[in-house]
Each structure stands twice: as C-alpha cells, then as structure tokens.
Amino acid sequence: MANPTTTLTGSASYEAPRSGTWDGGNEPFKASYGKLMMWFFLLSDAFTFAAFLTTYGMVRHRHLAYVGEAKDFFFSTMHWPIPEKVFNAFPGLHGVDIPLAFVALMTMILIVSSVTMVLAVEAGHRMDKDDVQKWLLWTLLFGAMFLGCQAWEWTHFITGSDHGLKMVDGSTVYGANLTVNEYGPVLFADLFFFITGFHGTHVFSGLCLLTYAFIATTNGTFHKRGHYEMIEKIGLYWHFVDLVWVFVFTFFYLI
C-alpha cells in the first residue's frame, strides 16, 4: 500500500518529512494516522454500545422473568417478554406467527453488506476503480435495505397487535411508545427504541459516508491520491456497525 508521505504533492511540503524516532518518524503500529484514529473511535463507540447492552441486562434482571412453558406465554407488564413472541411478524403475512424470521433476514442483509464492503476495500488495494464503484453500490443497496427493514420493524412494534393488552384499569394498550407498551414492562420498549435506534443511526451515518465514498471514487479523487485508504477507513466503520448488530441480535432477540 502506498505510504501517504511519499505521495504528498503541491506546495505544502517545503521541507523533507521528519523521519527521526522522536520527530514523529516512528510508526510502531504500522498503521496510518487516519486508520489508527478510526480504531480508537470505534473502541470508544464499542464502550457506548456495551453500556447500552449491559443496561439491558441489568434492567432485565431487575424485572421478573416469565416462568412456565414457552407455548403458554402471555404478555403482561409484570414480566419480561420472550423475544420470539414479540418479534414474530413478517411483512405481507399479517397475523401469522413466524418467530425471528424477519430479524434473520435483516441479519443476513447486514452481513452480506459487510462482505461487499470488504470486496470494495480489496478492489481499492488493486487500484481497480470500477470494482470499487461496483462493490460500494452493492454495500449502499444492502445498507439501505437494512434501514428499510428496521423502519418496517419499528412501525410494526409501535402499531402493535390487533388484540393489544388489557390493563388493570380496563383500558387496552396497542403497540408501544416510551411510556407504555403491550409487550411487557415500560423499559422493554424504551430499551428497544434506544438500542436499535442508536444502531440504526450508525447505519444511517455509514450510508452517508458510503455515498460520499462512491461520489469521490467516481470523480477519481482516490485514484489521483494514489491510494484508496478512505475506503478502508469507512470499511472499518461499516464492519463495526455489523459487529454491533451481531451483539444486538444475540442479546435482544435470542436470549
């Protein structure tokens, strides 16, 4: 891969790059500044998401668990719901109980988008502009598909079921908002909105970065620069979003 210092052009560099060990000429990590900072940012972001998921664990342990057979499960604000009873809807199949199928589809879409992103990075290493464009477009498509799926899932979660949940005061609650929901304790819906929402925001930021990367690639910006490191940095971010989803999937949908 091209070293950024060797490709510096223009009038910005009047003096030779400093190369002494204590002059900043030492690169113990053998990674560029930008890539290193992306790693450190992702590390801090991992702490944020871990705090969210740990909070989910804490709040869940603070509430009562449903005891009994899974087939006899009923929704109540008294106990934490079984995820596969909440997330069992599929677009176009109203009222049919298909546990976790839609989230499985979403997971696959995001993993495939991660693979197309690696392929874009790989094409960048070969300085193959056409391939970079192609794989960036696929990544954008799958990323947008994931976001669309999430929008559908949120809509379904907020709208709720046909029957709703009868409360002690005689009223019936349909769907969910931040103060009441038909699936279980208030905090269940709150954590759903915050955790999947924060992840969805990350996907959206990733799509903005990918759009920029596609435009810049098409304009030949990276090719003139002599390397496609920007694609690598955006790739790191995009894989991180996929990584977070793997954990959200396990802790929110499976356990």
């Binding site: 113990p28 990590f29 053998k30 990674a31 991660s114 693979v115 992103m117 690696v118 790739g235 790191l236 894989h239 991180f240 996929d242 990584l243 793997v246």
Partner: peptide, 12 residues
C-alpha cells in the same frame, strides 16, 4: 468480523 473483515488479525 474483527479479525478478517476489519483486518485486525493482520495488524501489528
């Protein structure tokens, strides 16, 4: 994901 996709396995 971290080792292969994010390439961490091949870093220092």
């Amino acid at each position: 994901i971290v080792a292969e996709f994010m390439h961490l396995r091949h870093e220092t």
